[in-house]
């Protein structure tokens, strides 16, 4: 079990102990975009990598930092309006790097605020247009109405996805992306089309907090598998114990909106 994966490039694999290799997770703007437990997504990736036998390395990127090289998974969350204002300019500076990574198939998870800013633009209630970085072919309109509550989504890739939404921006998908799934309870992207989230290459975008990944280990493992295959050519899964996740899903699915 200690062999270095043959495709492990340029010393990126981890040689210590029984690790199957190191996977580097980058949290985007954890200082300003980390609300409603979005930190839980990074924690779940870190632990599940360990449970799968890999060595996780958790990195942070905040405005003005050097952008780390050799990033394998990117996660980003939601924020206050004030948080979004702070990171906007910096995000534009990193648009090129992030787009390149996404186009190259790097797995990414963006929730709520960063989902919106990964799109083409966010138009505020008052009509101000805040440019996004356009990785996702989506656009968002700010509204007065806040969409809040428990959500259940049927997805073709990850089965039923459970979470909690809390947003006033309403997002419309263009033809360059597909939805993550169809809403069975709750609102999702907007109050019109019954769709939630967006998928493009290996980018998963969603409005769901909760945190999203703990109760949806299928999405966590998709990000991990994609990262491992991209880095080492193969993914050699372990056997995480998901029985609490299953019970938490069962109970959460029955709770009121």
């Amino acid at each position: 079990m200690t062999e270095e994966s043959p495709v492990s490039r340029a010393g990126k694999g981890n040689s210590k102990g029984n690790s199957k290799g190191t996977i580097r997770i980058l949290q985007l703007y954890p200082r300003d975009m980390n609300i409603y437990g979005d930190w839980g997504n990074a924690l779940v990736l870190k632990r599940r990598l360990q449970w799968h036998g890999y060595t996780p390395e958790l990195l942070e990127y905040n405005p003005g930092d050097d952008f780390p090289a050799d990033v394998d998974i990117i996660v980003g969350g939601g924020g206050q309006d004030s948080g979004q204002l702070i990171i906007q300019e910096d995000l534009q500076l990193r648009a090129g790097t992030l787009t390149e990574l996404a186009e190259d198939g790097a797995p990414m998870l963006v929730i709520c605020g960063l989902y919106q800013l990964f799109g083409r633009f966010f138009k505020t209630r008052l009509g101000t247009v805040i440019p996004g970085i356009g990785i996702l072919d989506v656009e968002t309109q700010g509204t007065d109405e806040r969409l809040i509550g428990n959500v259940r989504v049927s997805t073709p890739e990850f089965g039923e996805v459970l979470g909690y939404e809390n947003h006033s921006g309403q997002t419309t998908l263009g033809s360059g992306v597909r939805p993550l799934g169809t809403v069975a309870k709750g609102t999702g992207n907007n109050s019109k089309d019954g769709q939630e989230g967006a998928r493009y290459k290996n980018v998963v975008a969603s409005y769901l907090h909760g945190s999203l990944l703990p109760k949806n280990p299928a999405i966590a493992d998709f990000l991990i598998r994609t990262a491992a295959e991209r880095k080492f050519g193969t993914f050699d899964p372990g056997t995480p114990d998901d029985h609490y996740a299953l019970l938490a899903r069962e109970h959460a699915a029955r709770r009121p909106r």
Binding site: Y36, G37, W39, L43, H209, H251, A252
Partner: peptide, 29 residues
């Protein structure tokens, strides 16, 4: 209704002694 906040708390201080009993409508969360 939102359980997200549990993920903003660190529970390391309970690791040594463990937690004997969990209950409530979100006991499994």
């Amino acid at each position: 209704r939102d359980m997200s906040w549990l993920w903003d708390v660190e529970f390391d201080s309970l690791r040594d002694g463990g937690v004997d009993q969990l209950t409530g409508s979100r006991a499994y969360d």
